[in-house]
């Protein structure tokens, strides 16, 4: 059967899934179209809810470095040494290479 990928222990066929998806999309879109009309709001109505604060457009956008705060906060003890390891110093690049070379030589020598 074309499109069916056998992985040895599992199976996956994108085409059937897509077929189901199309059917479901028609059904769901039908339900969706039963709803009220879509309005692009402007003025006060279209402003994001900010508990009554007035903000400029630029400030509303959450910046990339603030995203995933909870994750980096929870894994602080993992990230601090990891960031420290990436010094950007060419000497360290070479040292890491030498270290790995030594380890691989020891492991390969012990085969």
């Amino acid at each position: 059967m074309i499109g069916t990928l056998e992985t040895g222990y599992g199976v996956w066929s994108a085409l059937y899934w897509l077929l189901g998806l199309v059917v479901l999309f028609i059904i769901v879109y039908f339900i969706y179209s039963l709803g009220g009309k879509t309005v692009k709001a402007s003025g006060d109505k279209g402003k994001p809810f900010l508990s009554g604060n007035e903000m400029e457009k630029e400030k509303i956008h959450v910046k990339a470095s603030n995203i995933y705060w909870g994750f980096t906060e929870a894994l602080k003890s993992y990230y601090t040494p990891l960031k420290g390891g990436h010094t950007g110093n060419i000497n360290d690049y070479v040292s890491w290479f030498v270290v790995v070379l030594a380890i691989v030589l020891i492991l390969a020598g012990g085969l």
């Binding site: 709803g35 009220g36 279209g46």
Partner: peptide, 18 residues
């Protein structure tokens, strides 16, 4: 909810939002 109007905020990227 289906009886209500569907508001799209001013700054939103419509096509993703809807």
């Amino acid at each position: 909810l289906f009886l209500k109007e569907n508001l799209v905020p001013e700054n939103a990227v419509d096509w993703v939002f809807n």
